[in-house]
């Protein structure tokens, strides 16, 4: 592989753009196809399908075998609430290679001391989220328990194509949340995208256990086409 091809591929990743590296197995010839250029590539259809699935693999065309290295952007986790659970969540999420950002307008919570290794934005979610650009490789979790902060974040998430939305709170809390979101104009189908109560049911008690249950649910959603019971 030529070094410039490798750096172009890595550059697409850091810019959060999908790309596919096409390798002709017999000749070793390679080309990089960026997401925006797929339409004009001879393998356009295959590339689109592979990108949708996020799966690398072999394809054949005109007697040639090509290997497609599919590179989707890194998965991002946006956490609303610089709370105790988020402090437990951030390091575990980093261990899973999630790109974590914490958002909380309460400056007493959103401090670098409480979150040493991840970006913390002490701003309102409805200001920050549009700047971050929520894409289909993003998960959003709302953990403040405060509708003033959680609701604007959930609205932004519901209007985006993010792959996971979760909200902390009991069933009763969620019923009231559903009412507020309906009044704000969201449909039942929209609101059904929200995982609430958040996380897999593992009987979690401590902040770290709740963090594991949330992250397990995010991974389960991300990898649903690989799951035996899905």
């Amino acid at each position: 592989m030529r070094l410039n091809l490798l750096s172009d591929l890595n550059a697409e990743r850091s810019a959060r753009r999908a790309a596919v590296l096409v390798t002709d197995i017999a000749s070793g010839e390679q080309r990089l196809v960026r997401e925006a250029e797929i339409g004009s590539d001879p393998l356009a259809q295959e590339l689109r399908e592979r990108l949708r699935q996020g799966k690398s693999g072999l394809v054949e065309q005109d007697g040639h075998q090509f290997f497609l290295t599919v590179q989707a952007p890194p998965v991002r986790l946006i956490v609303i609430g610089a709370v105790h659970i988020s402090q437990a969540l951030a390091p575990i999420a980093k261990g899973l290679d999630l790109d974590v950002t914490i958002i909380d307008p309460r400056t007493a919570f959103a401090t670098p001391e409480r979150f040493p290794d991840v970006p913390v934005r002490a701003e309102w979610p409805d200001i920050v989220l549009p700047q971050l650009g929520i894409d289909r490789y993003t998960a959003v979790v709302a953990l403040t328990h405060d509708p003033k902060i959680d609701d604007p974040a959930l609205s932004a998430a519901l209007k985006s194509e993010c792959f996971y939305i979760g909200a902390l709170g009991s069933r009763k809390t969620h019923e009231r949340r559903i009412q507020r979101l309906m009044e704000a104009g969201f449909t039942e189908a929209d609101i059904a995208r929200i995982h609430a109560p958040i996380g897999l049911d593992i009987g979690a008690i401590s902040p770290a256990e709740i963090a594991v249950s949330i992250l397990a649910e995010i991974v389960a959603t991300l990898r649903k086409d690989r799951r035996r019971s899905a």
């Binding site: 990743r13 980093k94 290679d97």
Partner: peptide
């Protein structure tokens, strides 16, 4: 942490 395949490609570069 170098757990994902793309981080590994960054290391290669």
């Amino acid at each position: 942490m170098q757990a994902t395949d793309t981080d590994i490609l960054k290391a290669a570069e």
